[in-house]
Nucleic acid binder design. Structure first.
Lengths: 345, 345
DNA sequence: GCTAATTATTTAACCGGTTACGAAATTTTA
DNA sequence: TAAAATTTCGTAACCGGTTAAATAATTAGC
């Protein structure tokens, strides 16, 4: 049961017969206290299992040792991965990561940002949501700009706002790799299944898809570019059905993420075709999902640990005023699994 | 760029020509301030975009308005679901949820608990990890007991410790439902693919599996009970292979979670068999995964929103000293999809 | 052994809010 | 219109730590 009166540093000091300053030094392991006193006081601290209040400490420190993170929804494995890696690294440095799910809702994103501001987080990691929209929603953009004037904001993505640090995946390289992989396997009828086009990632990937095809001497066909809307497997399934109903369907499909790739796979299976025999598929993100389907899906891979490392290092540097890159790009690679095959031209 | 000196309530008070008490009353919307003053001060607050420090506020409040949550790994969709739902509900009540991933590591679980204690969280949600082990690891158990003496601890699972609230899924009912579903479809050779047996859920499910079979007049066979170790799809795959290599393999399999069910599905496909034609599968948790595989997997379902609602309500009641149930059980149901078929006996 | 230098410890101010208490201003009552 | 009741507002203490400056206790130097 709760509500026992909290023990304070005063109680400890009194029982030990020393001043609070001495106790404070012992607790924060500062030099200048005799070992004998250290032990005596520590024993009392342990006896009561005293834990100094981070709140009181934070008030004088002006270092809350808290970092805020905003994402649309941790149920999405992409965000869960980033959060988990960042938390681990931040914790090693004595920081706590507070995560909020804002569901890409303007009122929520702003409310959470203000709440984090009140909590005096030392910096903000902005992962997905409205910050990915092009153009940026005005009110959000304005709030973010105000925020960035006070504390460092690290965007896990592109963002052309001033005063903002950027760490993002090289979607363009990833897309080119996917296209070239399929071309190398003999494909020329390559489709791209993408999500909402007001997301900058979609725009980047689409441009890279077009350019990569042209570089390979293949003319992009509009009918092979499918806007499936949401980024989930249902959209992938429906988008793939559209592709399969074309007079001249593609022989290979690149999906903008693995969920859509899994949906495409289902569509193909349900219509009696098979992967990779009849169609090849490449996903993006190389998430756990790609190993759950049959066959496993080849996918564009990047290193979450590296991604998170750069986010955290940038954040901590910015907090302490150390110079650091304003833009960091995370490279991608292709993980080949079972969903693509060489075709005879 | 950061490090502008923070604006305080004193600055606001000075500029408005009032006392800090008045500003404080206005900020927290307390009665007893003339509308005219309210507006004047609010204008200054808005002008500087002043946000009162939650840290300073927390120091006098003794209500941090923060709830701590410990889980093994949010990348696991189960925990992500609980967290996201709990956060939403807590936020509505003005609470922040701080989540830590402890990876079922004793030193980390304890370190995070102590950190949360320092942050003066008002209660703790304990989701998975060491708390699920039977027997409980002694040091962990002891730390948890100390913790529970200070603030309410709500375990998302079973836990026989005193002073602890429990909200858990009715695994026993779920398991029985799965068994009876398969029996109704004509199966009698029903296997159970489970994870680590030092987890209480495994023990409960196993007992329920045995009992349900017996109630149906079927003698449980030891060879049909497979300890696959980890709870991932790889284990499911290996476990299923073992079942398939039996002289008299089962015709149906219940997996202790959906990941394992997906792994089992892959094993079946790879050996040239098909689901549900040759084997029926039932998963547990009815997670997103079940819709990503081909065929979609029938699974034991429960309502995350209800689960989270009970966690949060129990937590908030306990915080405010209101009486509440010490044990709440969340019911399950079966979501029928495509992975089971009726067989002719 | 005595002074100087160094180290250990305490005192008290401070961090930025909240709030009990009392004074002042306003409204109500008679 | 004065007294009483009520509302508004400011003063100052308090929340639980940290830390600069002052002081006390040791150690070093000669």
């Amino acid at each position: 049961m709760p509500t026992k009166k909290e023990i304070t540093i005063y109680d400890i000091a009194k029982e030990a017969g020393v001043s609070t300053a001495t106790v404070s030094r012992i607790l924060s392991n500062t030099a200048g206290v005799k070992q004998e006193k250290r032990d005596r006081v520590q024993a009392i601290v342990d006896k009561y299992n005293f834990k100094p209040s981070a709140i009181a400490r934070g008030l004088s420190d002006t270092h809350s040792k808290v970092i805020g993170m905003l994402c649309p929804d941790v149920r999405n494995a992409y965000y869960a991965n980033i959060f988990m890696e960042c938390e681990r690294l931040a914790f090693e440095k004595g920081y706590t990561l507070v995560l909020n799910n804002a569901f890409t809702t303007e009122s929520l994103e702003i409310a959470f940002m203000e709440k984090l501001m009140e909590q005096r987080v030392e910096c903000l990691f902005l992962c997905g949501g409205l910050v990915d929209w092009r153009p940026l929603p005005p009110l959000f953009s304005q709030t973010l700009a105000r925020f960035a004037k006070r504390i460092p904001v690290i965007v896990a993505g592109k963002c052309e706002l001033d005063n903002v640090y950027q760490v993002y995946i090289d979607h363009i390289e990833g897309m080119r790799t996917a296209v070239k992989h399929l071309v190398t396997l003999g494909h020329s009828r390559i489709a791209f299944l993408h999500g909402f086009s007001y997301i900058y990632q979609t725009q980047d990937k689409l441009a890279a898809y077009r350019q990569a095809l042209e570089e390979e001497g293949i003319a992009p066909r509009d009918e092979y570019i499918v806007d499936a809307g949401e980024f989930n497997e249902q959209s992938g399934l429906l988008g793939m059905k559209r592709l399969l109903s074309l007079a001249s369907p593609p022989t290979a499909v690149i999906a903008t993420n693995d969920l859509m790739a899994a949906g495409a796979l289902q569509a193909i299976s349900r219509l009696g075709y098979s992967v990779p025999a009849d169609f090849s598929i490449v996903g993006f993100d190389d998430s756990l999902i790609t190993d759950l389907t049959e066959p496993n899906i080849s996918s564009i891979h990047y290193d979450y640990a590296l991604y998170a490392k750069n986010l955290v290092e940038t954040g901590l540097s910015a907090i302490s005023g150390k110079p650091c890159d304003r833009v960091i790009v995370i490279p991608t690679s292709l993980t080949v699994k079972e969903s693509c095959r060489k075709i005879d031209v």
